[in-house]
Amino acid sequence: MLLIHCPYCEEERPEMEFRHAGEAHLERPKNIAEISDEAFAAYFFYRDNPKGVVFERWRHLHGCARFFNAARDTVSDKFLTTYKAGQPKPDLVGAANMNIPAKSGKSGK
């Protein structure tokens, strides 16, 4: 069972308290009603599935109930960092022991 650091509670808590909530940094377009089919597909359907660092959302469901973001390495299953929702994607280049994929994140996020 992983230990996950909740950036709101500022504590490491067991994975059982959390629920995974999909890829992070996907912002709902402000003018969503007007966007093209392609833009909607990119927003709603397409997801990254890299071997290496993923940016993903978690919810501290059985704790503070807040959604937050995390960078996790899918190879080692280790969390590199967690941070509050709305904060920018952290610059992890140069961090030790990392497998940053060549292409990461969504355009414009």
Binding site: R19, A21, E27, R28, R57, R59, L61, A65, F67, A85
Partner: peptide, 10 residues
């Protein structure tokens, strides 16, 4: 969960 997600993040 759906409502909280929108309220907290969007």
């Amino acid at each position: 969960q759906h409502m909280e997600d929108y309220l907290q993040t969007e």
